[in-house]
Design a binder for these strands. Structure first.
Length: 491
RNA sequence: CGGGGUGUAGCGUAGCCCGGUUAUCGCGCCAGCUUUGGGAGCUGGAGAUCGCAGGUUCGAAUCCUGCCGCCCCGACCA
């Protein structure tokens, strides 16, 4: 029992850390606030990334790459933007080190100060819009539909593996359009792509919504988001899509000539999801025995463990497994055969459960003689004995069932954790009790929002795009409200 | 940045109050044998400048001073 994990009930935060580290996703690094993403965790990210990339390209976007460094002056061009990011920027001030003349190691060469400091990008709107100025002259140049896969740095005071690290990986889409309507359509299109990806591939149900002004992206006119709910009842923002209006076009002077020969500012969007999604996955599906990874993005979908005494028993098993692997691969299933001899079967069972592999096959001599294989699904722990004939097709179906089961379980949890409240007492009681989202009326005033945050530590996660439940009175002030919004404590 | 905690082998730890042989134990690691259907057993072995610097002392993991790192709670945030 070398890899005990703390239960969710005992210590939820520790449980999360245990899953990330003992599940082999990531490790702490020598750099404060930065993590090492290990091969298994990176493979998971790659599957997420590849699928999103496909979806972006299907909707007409192309990938490009912009510099990691941003001249300091760029950041201050858009007033809200600089205010939002200034206090968490890493800054490059010098370009050379030298040996300390006073002896010992290296020092920053004081003669090598940069004329203008460079910011390590916390997001790329400014460097990209500075570039778009040279790309866009006519309505014929529009739309510009660019995505970038990159790392960014935000100097957070407190960090958590995957959920909030100083450096993280993400994608950021930056588009330019001729009209406000078109830009808004793009904003919502990408929100829908995120929602579809998170629900259909990660098996996590989302709530689509709009942020209140105080939660809006720095520099955006409107921020749309998908919100998810973790098992401890806290909300996690899983993705955002921003309608930037003409803010960045004005800040970087990006104009185009319309068909009617009029000079107008371009309309913009930006949208992103990050490695934080990995954290969402861990917390949405994991259990007290480890990770539970939805089949559609699992690095390993099926693991095969042999059971044998001695080499003479192993040879026929190897041969049979060879056949199985061929058939599974032909069916497009990602399969791993773990016949390593330094760990015994029991150890492997626990290990692959910890890693959240959706299906385990166990094949021993006695299975072989009756032409069956033991099949164990990770989500329900159900053990079955299946005939070797027709195995690939049956597994394909099982993987689909697991995917569906994970989603429906998470959806039930979400639905059960959206609770209406019409007064502060109820709102607080729900937050302190079962947690989750509280659907309540809000008068639209930022000060009311701030006050509720002070009182309850809950923020307005979003104004849901779906039905608002009709008119009512603000949960705090009693002033009239057109619709309900969702409050929650959040990551 | 404020409050609390902590630092001994890759990981988890005992020893510290009350200074004294070769720093304890478990996991992991290496070798060999036996094992293999839910985290194997036995035997042998490797692995630690006790966070760093200074001080007190015949003698410091242990006492004193200073510094540093990390973790948790808050403010900030995807």
């Amino acid at each position: 029992m070398s890899k005990e994990i703390v239960s969710r009930a005992a210590d939820y935060s520790q449980w999360y850390n245990d899953l990330v580290i003992k599940g082999g996703l990531a490790d702490y690094s020598a750099v404060r606030g930065c993590m090492v993403i290990k091969p298994y965790g990176f493979s998971l990210w790659e599957h997420m990334r590849d699928q999103l990339d496909r979806m972006f390209k299907e909707t007409g976007h192309q990938n490009a790459y912009f510099p990691i460094f941003i001249p300091k002056s760029f950041l201050s061009r858009e007033a809200d933007h600089v205010e939002g990011f200034a206090k968490e920027c890493a800054v490059v001030t010098h370009y050379r080190l030298k040996t300390d003349p006073a002896g010992g190691g290296l020092i920053v060469d004081p003669d090598a100060r940069l004329e203008e400091e460079l910011i390590v990008r916390p997001t790329s709107e400014t460097i990209i819009w500075n570039t778009y100025k040279t790309w866009i002259q006519s309505y014929r140049d529009l739309p510009v539909l660019i995505n970038q896969w990159a790392n960014v740095v935000r100097w957070e005071m407190r960090t958590r593996l995957f959920l909030r690290t100083s450096e993280f990986l993400w994608q950021e889409g930056h588009t330019a359009h001729a009209t406000s309507k078109e830009a808004m359509e793009e904003t919502l299109r990408m929100l829908e792509i995120y929602a579809g990806f998170v629900e259909e591939f990660m098996a996590i149900p989302v709530i689509r919504g709009v942020k209140t002004p105080s939660e809006r992206f720095a520099g955006a006119v409107e921020t749309y988001c998908i919100e998810t709910l973790m098992q401890d009842g806290k909300a996690l923002q899983a993705g955002t899509s921003h309608f930037l209006g003409q803010n960045f076009a004005k800040a970087f002077d990006v104009k185009f000539l319309t068909r009617e020969n009029a000079l107008e500012y371009v309309w913009a969007t930006s949208w992103g999801v990050s490695t934080r999604l990995v954290g969402a996955l861990v917390m949405a599906h994991g259990d007290d025995d480890g990770l539970v990874i939805p089949p559609r993005i699992a690095p390993i979908q099926v693991v095969i463990v042999p059971v044998y005494r001695g080499e003479d028993q192993k040879t026929p098993i190897d041969q049979e497994v060879g056949q199985i692997i061929l058939k599974l691969k032909a069916a497009g299933i990602r399969v791993k055969y773990d016949d390593s001899d330094h760990n015994r079967p029991g150890w492997k069972f626990a290990e692959y459960e910890m890693k959240g592999v959706p299906v385990r096959l166990t094949l021993g001599s006695r299975d072989l003689s009756s032409r069956v294989v033991e099949v164990v699904r990770r989500d329900t722990r159900e053990k079955m004995s299946w005939p070797l004939e027709g195995l690939a097709a049956a597994l394909e179906q099982l993987l689909g069932q697991i995917q569906e089961n994970l989603f429906s379980k998470a959806r039930t949890f979400l639905t059960d954790h959206i609770t209406p409240a019409d007064d502060m007492e109820t709102l607080t009681a729900i937050l302190d009790g079962k947690g989750g989202f509280v659907s309540a009326h809000w008068d639209g005033n930022p000060q009311t929002e701030e006050k509720i945050k002070e009182l309850t530590k809950a923020t307005i996660r979003c104004i849901p795009l779906e039905a608002g439940g009709g008119e009512g009175k603000c949960v705090l002030t009693g002033r009239p409200s057109a619709r309900r919004v969702l409050f929650a404590r959040a990551y």
